[in-house]
Design a binder for these strands. Structure first.
Lengths: 235, 235
DNA sequence: CCAAAAGTGTTTGATTTACACCCATGG
DNA sequence: CCATGGGTGTAAATCAAACACTTTTGG
């Protein structure tokens, strides 16, 4: 094994992922069960050590794939924040760069080689008690959820929770679940279809159970919303 | 000198500060002239290496004080983002955690021990050419300015550019300079005084040159603005 | 008195909200 | 046919923008 020497004290750099989706009318995060010490057997955000020549977002995507079998190609990935309290890891001085990933509720994680298993859990459940997540991952998850909630308002992040084709009602459910409010279907429809570049009609129609068929839309090119969507419940 | 060995490759962790203020009707950032290699003699954001037992924001504040003689006690300091491209520092693999600091135009930096000198420069000038700043500091500065511009809209960050007592007109100048727009004095006044908790009247009056004396306000307890200030020029 | 800045009033138009109502579909 | 969700119409309330106008100060 290679041994490195340095006149400076060693830092360890990791990446962690706050991977969010909307499942069963609840905001859910992806977690793995830790297979090694410390916190063995405890739930944790997927993540791991950054390679010495590896860019940070590349490491985040790689760890996600290795630990959960999930590919995030073409999905929303953004840097969240960096966590570096001196005592956040009992072993070493570790700096963790957290990434926020937003996925549609499609891919079922399979559990990769590093972790014993990967699961979706409701964020309300994960955050309800202080000891459900290892390290400072509760703090990281809270920040990720807060970021997602805020960005729904003034960006098109909501569409990242939907598949490539979605109905306006599906998009509305995303907002309702993430914000925990009820929105007026008619007003929401007018609002999102009225912002140029937010969503684009695909021409196709959905057949989702009973009722009139809804138009299927795809994500528009717009990233930032101006004016922002109102956060006061339109209901 | 102590020598550390590790089976993992060494990462170096630094902090850098995007320190903004409004001076002479322009948005300005604090920069130092590098005294050592690499990029010796080039302008750079103030920053330096994190100590092995030091928390990240503590390191940011310490480096700022050492390099510029500036105390940021009680001022706005927030984490901006982390920059970790493998080739961003020609010497080592270095991860830099950037902080955004917003100050009123009061303290004159003096130049500390690490850097040869510290100056305020207009961000337009610093960003106008690719080679005015060392490393990826142009990128970091651009992100910091963008963050500040965005946060003016939906938080009370604007008041952090002002001293402890300020007039509504001074606050308005901050918005005008940072956004590069002209705002209607009357509408702006009504808006900011109308949001509960944004600014609080101090009871005192300013005597700023000619014209009627303006009421002096101080920062209110409000952090997030809902609804956001409109960004379309009220003029 | 005059210029200039502070602050208020007022009008107009846009946006938000609430909710009625018709459309289309599956069962 | 009827329950259900999709989508549009519409009126009231609220908010934003433009700008007139009064107040207060320095020179």
């Amino acid at each position: 094994m290679m041994v490195y020497t340095s006149k400076y004290p060693p830092f360890f750099v990791t990446v962690d992922g706050v991977v969010l989706t909307v499942r069963d009318d609840a905001l859910c995060a992806l977690v793995v069960t830790r297979g090694g010490e410390p916190y063995k057997g405890t739930l944790a955000l997927p993540g791991g050590f950054v390679d010495i020549d590896e860019d940070l977002p590349v490491a985040a995507v790689r760890e996600l794939s290795e630990e959960t079998g999930l590919s995030v190609r073409g999905q929303h990935v953004e840097q969240l924040a960096t966590y570096g309290a001196p005592d956040r890891d009992p072993r070493h001085r570790t700096i963790s760069v957290a990434y926020l990933v937003v996925l549609p509720d499609l891919a079922e994680p399979v559990g990769g080689d590093d972790a014993t298993d990967a699961h979706w859990h409701r964020v309300t459940w994960l955050l309800a008690r202080k000891d459900r997540l290892a390290f400072d991952h509760r703090h990281i998850l809270r920040d990720g959820v807060e970021r997602a909630r805020a960005k729904l308002e003034y960006t098109a992040l909501g569409t990242s929770f939907c598949g490539s084709l979605f109905t306006i009602a599906e998009l509305r459910r995303v907002y309702e679940v993430v914000w925990g409010v009820e929105l007026d279907p008619g007003n929401f429809h007018r609002k999102v279809t009225g912002v140029p570049g937010f969503v684009e009609p695909s021409g196709e129609k959905a057949s989702r159970g009973t009722g009139r068929r809804a138009t299927l839309y795809r994500r528009g090119p717009l990233a930032a919303l101006n004016p922002p969507l109102t956060r006061t419940a339109m209901k």
